Amino acid sequence: MINSDLLKSFIAAADTGSFSAAARQLGRQQSTISSNIAKLEDELSVVLFDRKGKYPQVTEAGLALYDSAKLALDSAERFENSAALISAGSPVSLTIAFDEDLPLSPFMTWLQHIHKKYPIMQVRLVRKPSTQIFELVKNNQIDLALTPSLESNSSFYEFTAVGHIRYIFACGRQHPFRHKRQISNDDLATSTQVVASSMLESQLIQAVAMSSQRWYCEGYETLLAALQANIGWAFIAVDQSAPLPEGIVSFKPDFSATHHSAQYDIIWPKNKILSEIECQLRDQLATVVANMNKQT
Rank of each mutant, 00 (worst) to 15 (best):
K54N: 12
Q25G: 04
I142T: 00
S275G: 12
I267V: 14
E218W: 03
Q280R: 12
D67I: 05
N271G: 07
I37A: 08
I267S: 01
T258S: 12
F134K: 05
A225V: 02
V92E: 15
Y216D: 02
Q206C: 06
C217Y: 04
T287A: 14
N3E: 15
G247V: 05
L71V: 11
E158N: 15
S149H: 07
L26I: 09
P148K: 07
M121S: 04
K116Q: 15
R173Y: 08
Q132R: 12
A72P: 01
Y220N: 10
S90K: 08
I277R: 11
G89S: 11
I114A: 10
G232D: 08
P148I: 02
L63K: 14
V123P: 03
L48V: 05
P119R: 07
V195H: 02
E218N: 09
F134R: 10
A64I: 06
H115I: 06
E135K: 15
V208C: 07
K54T: 12
V194K: 01
D186C: 00
A21P: 01
R28N: 11
L204V: 04
T16G: 02
V123F: 06
E135Y: 12
I2K: 04
W215I: 12
K54C: 02
G163S: 04
W110D: 13
V208Q: 08
V289P: 01
Q122P: 00
S87E: 14
S34F: 02
Q112H: 15
N36C: 08
Q228H: 08
S154A: 05
F107I: 13
V137P: 00
D239W: 06
D283H: 05
A257I: 07
A161L: 06
P103H: 12
K180R: 11
L73F: 06
S250Q: 15
L188T: 07
M199C: 10
S211K: 06
A209F: 00
Q228K: 13
A242H: 08
Q57C: 03
K116R: 15
V58E: 03
I267D: 01
P56Y: 02
D74Q: 14
R181M: 05
P245F: 13
Q263L: 13
I183V: 10
S212Y: 03
V249F: 09
K116H: 15
A225P: 02
A189N: 01
P106R: 09
T190R: 12
Y157W: 09
E41Y: 03
T190Y: 07
W110G: 08
D101V: 11
K128E: 14
G89T: 09
R78E: 08
I33T: 06
L146A: 08
A145R: 03
E80Y: 05
I277F: 07
G232I: 09
K54G: 13
A72Y: 01
M108G: 06
P176R: 03
T131L: 09
R51N: 12
